[in-house]
């Protein structure tokens, strides 16, 4: 009994850690974006805020690795499958989207934010489908 309690507790702790790092990184990206646009007019400040955001991003990646290592083998398989699907969709979708831009099929420039949204949505959908498959 004890082993599982610890296993579950470790998982919960790692989920909280990942949520915190993700929150901090998201806030830092917003600070860099809006701060440099509306609050300050300094390349030094922008550079420092980008550096801080990058460090927080590395923290988020480390927290994600820690979270993945705390999962059991089925949960990890579901996550890995979802990441593989999201990566594939990002690659194919991203290249197609870039081609639409470079060949002038679409009038506006390709935006990285659309690609990030696509990755996020496909990852979430793949995790939900994976969990439903092994229910």
């Amino acid at each position: 009994m004890k082993a599982k309690e610890n296993h579950g507790e470790v998982q919960k702790k790692n989920v909280r850690g990942l949520a915190l790092w993700t929150f901090l990184w998201t806030i830092s990206v917003a600070v860099v974006t809006f701060g440099s646009q509306y609050v300050w007019d300094s390349k030094v400040l922008t550079g420092v805020s980008i550096l801080i955001s990058t460090v927080l991003g590395i923290g988020m990646i480390r927290a994600n690795i820690k979270y993945l290592l705390s999962l059991d083998e089925l949960q990890r398989k579901i996550q890995m499958d979802a990441m593989g699907i999201a990566l594939g969709i990002a690659l194919v979708g991203g290249i197609s989207y870039a081609l639409l831009d470079t060949t002038n099929v679409i009038s506006q420039d390709a935006e990285i934010s659309y690609l990030i949204i696509l990755i996020g949505l496909s990852y979430m959908a793949a995790v939900l489908i994976g969990n439903a498959r092994y229910k």
């Binding site: 059991d72 083998e73 229910k135």
Partner: peptide, 23 residues
């Protein structure tokens, strides 16, 4: 209880029992 004893989730035990996942 089996999940507790073996350090995995209940979902994993269920998937193994149903033959959906090989441990």
């Amino acid at each position: 209880q089996l999940a507790d004893e073996t350090g995995v989730s209940r979902q994993t035990i269920n998937a193994i029992e149903k033959g959906k996942f090989d441990p």
